[in-house]
Design a protein around this nucleic acid. Structure first.
Length: 487
DNA sequence: AAAAAAG
């Protein structure tokens, strides 16, 4: 098997890789690093979670190791679709420039002050990591010249396309010298992406990560078919259903991302969970960047248990140990489902994805099953048979805010109360039996914060062996565009 | 139909 040490990387980069505890590159790394080091353009067709980031940061650091940056003229540029992803790439650079103390970088993202960014640009940076809007903002203010860019990376190009960034990307391409080296990554090759690569890449080495034979078997997937007793109670009852799903998982649910389709629902669900004593916080694009960063950091380091999120967190976010993903809403694009549940079961771990599906979402749900080519285990809504399911919901919700602390204990005690029996009735007998409420553990405590949450700690220190820098790739995600549209 | 990104 290939080792990093076979790849002609700068010894100082190799040392940093070793420190981070990695030996063997993932397929995308093994494929992309050699041509990148030779100065060739690279077209990488790979999803997040394949070790994609390091497949460009490692050769970039090696190439940039020689030479020095000039003021206002960065030598390389990485474009990312969201601020969080940009920040994640920046962290990746930090990890592997450990022994390149002279290499400088700047993170140019929106929502934060220009001041620090301007200062860094003026001093001269080797690596610029940016979201398109803020980057162009700097350019327009005459603070930044892209004529010195030797290496340009476009990450998550298909998501850029989804978000309408393609004109910006084209514009940024046109501001850089055409002699630059381009490393371009996309999960799929949509026609528009194909066009861009034909225009801006020259004779690229094309690396496509092998599709996994099976579809993310380490993620157990269930769906609760849910119908509110009355339309105006849907929100309340759905939130109750969510709490039941969470409580039923007990300690197996060490932490979770809960996805909603709308920002408003993200706020509502987060607020509701907090009220019920769950350790929860929201993240979406309307929140302050400082808030977003703080929340994500807390979730990463294990001090926040539930992250309630819009699709801003659906793709690419790398939190090594997320035990559960809850889809409070069925995503309206089947592909988003794949991205969302891909936040769990990472680095070879097991994960569980649970979704609530209301009647009007059934069409979207069908599309999801079609895409993943798999039947998702149904669980019934245990509230459905009740005479007045909303009654006890409202009784609790009407209560004043509860004390913060014994959330786990509380949910347990509620569960053990006869009135609140929340045994989940299971349709599919075989696999889903474990969904039934288990006898309460004698002593319930908050799950200990995980070790090895930090950078480079991915997949280490547990039983699961992880190869390379990357994580597990849910197999069906790697289907080509054509393959998917065939269905 | 909504989210994201520049304000």
């Amino acid at each position: 098997m290939t080792k990093f040490s076979d790849l002609n990387l700068d010894p100082k980069v190799l040392k940093a890789i070793e420190d981070a505890g990695y030996e063997s590159p993932t397929p995308i790394q093994a494929g992309a690093i050699p041509p990148a080091l030779l100065g060739q353009d690279v077209l990488g067709i790979a999803q997040t979670g394949t070790g994609k980031t390091a497949s460009f940061t490692l050769p970039m650091i090696t190439l940039l190791g020689k030479g020095r940056a000039r003021a206002r003229m960065p030598r390389s540029l990485v474009l990312c679709p969201t601020r969080e992803l940009a920040a994640q790439v920046a962290e990746n650079f930090d990890t592997y420039t450990k022994y390149h103390t002279k290499l400088t970088k700047a993170l140019l993202i929106g929502g934060v002050s220009f001041k620090e960014q301007d200062r860094l640009i003026d001093k001269g940076v080797d690596v610029l990591i940016a979201t398109p809007g803020r980057l162009l903002d700097h350019v327009e203010r005459g603070k930044l010249l892209l004529t010195g860019v030797q290496v340009m990376v476009v990450d998550e190009a298909d998501r850029m396309l989804d978000m309408g960034f393609i004109p910006d990307i084209e514009r940024i391409f046109s501001l850089t010298p055409f002699t630059r080296q381009t490393l371009f990554f996309s999960a799929t090759m949509a026609p528009e992406i194909e066009r861009i690569t034909n225009t801006f890449l020259s004779n690229p080495a094309r690396i496509e990560v092998a599709r996994q034979a099976t579809s993310s078997e380490n993620i157990e997937q269930v769906v609760m078919m849910f119908k509110a007793s009355r339309k105006d109670r849907e929100g309340t009852e759905k939130r109750k259903a969510l709490r039941m799903l969470i409580d039923n998982e007990g300690e197996k649910c060490t932490n979770a991302i809960i996805f909603c389709n709308r920002k408003m629902d993200v706020d509502t669900v987060a607020k509701s969970l907090k009220k019920y004593g769950y350790d929860a916080a929201p993240i979406h694009g309307d929140l302050d960047q400082s808030q977003r960063t703080k929340t994500l950091d807390a979730f990463r380091d294990g001090s926040l248990r539930f992250l309630i999120a819009s699709d801003v967190a659906a793709r690419g976010l790398d939190v090594p140990a997320v035990s559960h993903v809850f889809n409070y809403d069925v995503p309206s694009h089947a592909e988003d489902y794949v991205h969302r549940i891909g936040r769990t079961g990472r680095a070879g771990r097991d994960g569980k994805a649970m979704m609530i599906c209301v009647p009007r979402d059934e069409k979207n749900f069908d599309a999801i099953e079609k895409l993943i080519q798999k039947t998702v285990t149904r669980i019934d809504n245990p509230l459905a048979g009740k005479e007045d399911p909303a009654k006890d919901v409202q009784a609790v919700e009407a209560k004043p805010d509860h004390e913060e602390k014994p959330k786990r204990t509380r949910s347990r005690s509620r569960k053990s109360a006869p009135k609140e029996d929340v045994v989940v009735v299971v349709e599919a007998p075989a696999e889903a039996v474990e969904m039934k409420k288990e006898p309460a553990a004698p002593e319930v405590q908050k799950p200990a914060p995980k070790e090895n949450r930090g950078r480079g700690g991915r997949g280490r220190g547990n039983d699961n062996k992880v190869v390379g820098l990357g994580d597990h790739l849910p197999g069906f995600i790697a289907m080509s565009f054509e393959e998917r549209s065939e269905n």
